[in-house]
């Protein structure tokens, strides 16, 4: 168990949050122009790193907001928490 520092509510138990998957996956602007393989990559393929992971969480039992987290998937230590749209997050594009 670990704590997550919600950008709106402050540190709370992880149990209050719902995991919302890998971050920074952008819906392709023009799906019709993609090959099946590109579409499959967008829909299904994930980086799933052992280590630094850029992911989304939602404070479901709090403010209800979505935000981004960079977390180590082995130690579960959280490196940073940020609000999507703000381009300050490490190597995320």
């Amino acid at each position: 168990m670990f704590q997550i520092d919600c950008p709106w509510c402050g540190p709370r138990d992880q149990q209050e949050f719902a995991y919302a998957g890998e971050a920074a996956i952008k819906r392709p602007e023009n799906p019709a122009s993609l090959s099946d393989a590109e579409w499959a990559d967008y829909l299904f393929m994930r980086t799933n790193p052992r280590g630094r992971h850029h992911e989304q969480w939602r404070h479901v039992h709090g403010c209800g907001q979505f935000f981004d987290v960079v977390r180590d998937t082995v130690t579960y230590r959280i490196e940073s928490v940020d609000v999507p749209g703000r381009p300050a997050l490490g190597d995320a594009s």
Partner: peptide, 13 residues
């Protein structure tokens, strides 16, 4: 645990 994890342990909840 709903989140991605490689730690061979699970959450208490």
């Amino acid at each position: 645990d709903a989140f991605n994890g490689y730690g061979q342990r699970g959450s208490f909840n």
